[in-house]
């Protein structure tokens, strides 16, 4: 793909907007369609587009596989950790009501955090799977 100037220029233009849209979907999921899962996939597609156009080696420099692997686990830990935070604060597992001063405030905070965990795991998992498939040679 190194010789396709149009593809390179257009994807350079598009990638920031794809990432911005992923963040919008992530944090606007409370109010409109979307959420962590969709946002994670969109965020991963930005990295995958970069890898397709600029080569796998450059994509690995942007998103080091070691860091991405840790992020796969970090998302699940963030999610489960929010559950345990509810336990420590005297509620049930994954009970967000006790996380803040008011129940509705706690729900807001809890949903924001667990959606972030979902997005992290999904994005990192998709990038990992793409790296592994694309990194194999015939």
């Amino acid at each position: 793909m190194r010789h396709h100037r149009v593809l390179r220029v257009i994807s350079k233009l598009l990638i920031p907007f794809i990432m911005l849209f992923a963040l919008y979907v992530q944090f606007h999921g409370d109010f409109g369609p979307g959420g962590g899962f969709q946002a994670g996939v969109i965020m991963a597609s930005a990295f995958i587009l970069y890898g397709l156009i600029f080569g796998l080696e450059n994509a690995r420099k942007v998103a080091p596989p070691g860091v991405i692997t840790m992020l796969v686990a970090a998302g699940v830990l963030i999610y489960a950790g929010t559950g345990y935070a509810g336990l420590l604060k005297g509620g049930n597992f994954l009970d967000y009501n006790v996380l803040a001063a008011t129940p509705v405030g706690g729900q807001h905070l809890g949903i924001l955090i667990i959606e972030f965990g979902v997005g992290t795991t999904v994005a990192a998992a998709m990038i990992t799977i793409f790296f592994l498939f694309a990194g194999r040679e015939r």
Partner: peptide, 26 residues
């Protein structure tokens, strides 16, 4: 307190199931 009921169900009422789904992706 969320206008999007889908998110309320997925993240709060059915938060346990969503934790399972994230574990599946992991």
């Amino acid at each position: 307190g969320l206008p999007n009921v889908v998110t309320s169900v997925l993240a709060s009422y059915r938060g346990y199931d969503t934790l399972g789904e994230v574990t599946v992706i992991f």
